[in-house]
Nucleic acid binder design. Structure first.
Lengths: 119, 119
DNA sequence: AACATACTTGAACAATTGTTCAAATATGGT
DNA sequence: ACCATATTTGAACAATTGTTCAAGTATGTT
């Protein structure tokens, strides 16, 4: 049996490679995961999320707190809404946003711990 | 006292806005946070990290496991190294990678829980 | 109905991203 | 010294991103 692709020796030797492959979730799930975590990869959104971790806030408040334009905030809130990272409720003219669940706060918390400890 | 900027009423009413502002970390810390979490926002990197959460692996093994080219893997490993998300050690011709600490695995775990529960 | 406030949206734009390909570097074996 | 293997790197490219600006929708007040 001839190997067509040029692969390294350790790959042929280590049978753990097969084990790892079969332990991976399907691509679809991996894409879902990365699209969710992608939302945390921007400083404007992190600022918004940190603010929301303290208090339920309307779009305009978030703009005042973060220093971003109302439009920029709204665009980012749409991203966060679509990815089910924040939830919202309308109250009169205002729309109030809050974190979707405890996992979102947990990720921010763990990430901050990592940053703090890696110095 | 006149307000120069056009801000919404709820911002003027709610004194919590000031509280939230002062609770936010400095911008520098927020950028650090987002740059760290940015690394989780790509399906190739997530695949690599999930693989590494199972086993220490060399570049070539990661390529075989993920189906990405060796070059693409190496470029992504550089990103993950720079952000202190993976660590590495050279052994002969191979360079073996592993997750930097338990926080990295924790973030992946929490994110997977979120995905699973939000359906 | 007319107006002000709160928010959302779409188009446009510069800036950044991830991959490929070719070339370079590093290590070990002969 | 030479060759093969393992990995890294740089340039190039299409694709995606986040912001701004202007225009839109939604709600409450008069």
């Amino acid at each position: 049996m001839v190997k067509s692709a040029p692969v390294c020796k350790s790959e042929s030797i280590g049978e753990y490679v097969e084990d790892v492959i079969s332990s991976l979730p399907p691509d679809e799930r991996i894409i879902e995961l990365s699209e969710f975590l992608e939302a945390f990869g921007d400083s404007s959104r992190i600022k918004i999320l940190l603010a929301l971790s303290k208090h339920e806030l309307c779009t305009c408040d978030i703009s005042a707190i973060t220093g971003l334009s109302v439009s920029a905030v709204s665009h980012q809130l749409r991203v966060l809404r679509d990815k089910k990272i924040v939830k919202y409720r309308r109250d009169g003219r205002n729309v109030f946003y809050s974190l979707d669940d405890e996992h979102v706060a947990a990720i921010l918390e763990t990430a901050m711990k990592h940053i703090r400890e890696r110095r």
